[in-house]
Design a protein around this nucleic acid. Structure first.
Length: 226
DNA sequence: GCGACAG
DNA sequence: ATCTTGTCGC
């Protein structure tokens, strides 16, 4: 893949926050997708007590052979020294550099990328999925296991039930019951796609577990299990 | 000042 | 995120 215009990642919190406000203005929430043939899942894990950051990308073929049965086309792992501590709201500065390096190793070019974390459901509308989407210049959607910001009612108990995630009058994502009887996931568009489309793809990629297949497989690989 | 807080 | 065994439930 090409080398996106990287900025300085090692910024002080205050400077990082200002940069997020700038970059948020570049995020596109209109659908701008190519025909989907490959969907990538991305996640980051840590080794050596957190000293090593491990980025994993798994590419799945679309459509699946059978509902919920995806074929893994390619998967890569990239390890590098951890550069930033975890600070709520500034997650992308800790994870995106490693994710970009992992994408550089990728041979397949996905038309859609699912990221473990928030898209625009972020205080400044620049969660890790949005930030990564800008630098990859690819459609991305965020699927997080818990809430960062916003308020919402409890979605129904049936798989597929959802409720909007609101920040004041603004709808920033949806809380989706991805599996009956399990805590819901938080879906929000990252870049180059709308919320309805983000929800459609997150739902379309569901297997029989809580997380959509792209993110679930990347999660396993990043935690050196898969 | 007091909570809340993706991974 | 990560450290960790068994155990409850479909």
């Amino acid at each position: 893949m090409s080398n996106p215009p990287l900025h300085d990642w090692n910024l002080a919190p205050k400077a990082a926050i200002e940069l997020q406000k700038q970059l948020a203005g570049r995020v596109e929430l209109e659908d701008r997708l190519e025909r989907i043939r490959h969907i990538a899942g991305v996640d980051i894990g840590f080794e050596e007590s957190g000293d090593i950051t491990r980025a994993a990308v798994v590419v799945l073929a679309w459509p699946p052979a059978a509902p919920g049965e995806f074929e893994v086309v390619e998967q890569v792992v990239h390890r590098e020294p951890t550069r930033m501590p975890y600070i709520p709201g500034l997650l992308s500065f800790r994870e995106v550099p490693a994710a970009l390096a992992a994408f550089d190793k990728l041979t397949t070019k996905p038309e859609l990328v699912m990221v473990d974390g928030q898209g625009i459901a972020h205080p400044r509308r620049l969660g890790v999925a949005s930030h990564l989407g800008l630098w990859l210049d690819l459609p991305t959607t965020g699927v997080a296991k818990s809430r960062l910001c916003g308020r919402h009612a409890t979605p129904g108990d049936e798989r597929g039930d959802w409720m909007p995630l609101m920040d004041g009058e603004e709808t920033i994502g949806v809380v989706l019951r991805s599996r009956t009887g399990v805590k819901p996931v938080f879906v929000s568009p990252g870049h180059r796609l709308s919320l309805p489309t983000a929800l459609e793809w997150a739902t379309a990629c569901l297997g029989r577990t809580k997380l959509p297949e792209p993110t679930r497989l990347a999660d396993r690989l990043a935690s050196r299990r898969g």
